[in-house]
Design a protein around this nucleic acid. Structure first.
Lengths: 189, 189
DNA sequence: CATCAACGATGATAAAAGTCTATGTTTTAC
DNA sequence: GTAAAACATAGACTTTTATCATCGTTGATG
């Protein structure tokens, strides 16, 4: 499993990194069961997860006690509640495994040590943060002005695998529409 | 004007900062006229702006060639297209002055020098990035599930001054609803 | 493998949001 | 100061989305 992470890092920072194995040793393997809660709103987010296999959902509870999903994270991507992880403040969001997942988790201490031991890794946090930010901005700019139908078309274009992999209920909460509407519109495509 | 920025920095990092005046000298005053374009999509974003006075709009052109506003930035806040500023890639967004504004602009070179001359400022970029990220995440999590009416209520609670200060058209594009709907619902409150 | 719960699709209906037109008002620009 | 342009509101109407109930299917669990 750690191999997946190794390749991810090499792909980003090149393969002339010293102490790479030392860095990798800071990650511990977490096997998450389907529907397992990894972070609850109000807790401090203790880990940054690298998703080696499986799928995670980042969500909040909205006013009607249903879920609004901000992100669905699949293989070869990072997942965390970065604001909480970085500051130690209570998390605003929840994270759960949608599928049985294999995660590589690093805690704050490990993160610090990683950054100290390999200067290049000083950029990793920033890279993750920037990527997350870009992702959020993109999501706001596209979704705010799109109709339900166009959101579905967007999903089919940019994240097509989710359509077959994930439940309609979850997709709907990610697209910000109701599951009935999703079902009906999807049939008309 | 520079005084506003000075106080902003002291408020955040404390007032025992060496070289503060050197740092401040890296910023140049920009007087922006009403509706002046500060960044166009496709250009590289060259500056981070501190808004000393006035109001900026960050927006994209959506499919119907109307505008979707991701953020409205008022006094004592930072404004930029950070992804482009940090990477040099073409900006995805536009920035314009909504009101005649007084801005303190720092370019990438100045930013670098600032970070080198005052170690504490190494955190400034991260702080700005984190704040921007938190802002985006918050916006997604609240807005995706809110009705038009609830979005207006949200605005009145959390950004009440915008209601009187900014045109209905702009507010509507910020809330992701149509100006007619905004006008009608507002009347019913 | 049998049972119960969750899921997905669909029809009927209600509510919300969008569109278009018109009209009076405020701003802007000359 | 005046003409033109942009803006705000309101009514009538259309389209989109939400809600609710039903039913067959799938899937998890003991």
């Amino acid at each position: 499993m750690i191999e997946v992470l190794k390749q991810h890092i090499v792909k980003r920072l090149g393969n002339d990194i010293q102490n790479l194995d030392f860095v990798l040793s800071k990650f511990k393997l977490v096997e998450a069961k389907r529907n397992q809660q990894l972070l609850m709103q109000g807790e401090t987010c203790k880990y940054v997860y690298f998703v080696a296999k499986g799928c995670l959902q980042v969500y909040v509870h909205d006013s009607e006690m249903s879920e609004t999903t901000r992100d669905i994270v699949t293989e070869d991507n990072w997942c965390s509640e970065l604001i909480s992880f970085g500051s130690g403040q209570p998390a605003m969001e929840n994270i759960r495994a949608v599928e049985p997942s294999q995660l590589l988790a690093i805690d704050r201490k490990g993160f610090q040590e990683m950054m100290e031991s390999v200067p290049q890794f000083d950029k990793v946090y920033r890279q993750i943060l920037e990527a997350s930010y870009a992702n959020s901005v993109y999501r706001i700019n596209t979704f705010v002005s799109l109709s339900a139908l166009d959101r579905i078309k967007w999903l089919m274009e940019f994240r097509p695998t989710l359509m077959t992999r994930i439940s309609s209920k979850l997709i709907a909460s990610y697209l910000g529409i109701h599951k009935d509407v999703f079902s009906r519109l999807k049939a008309k495509l």
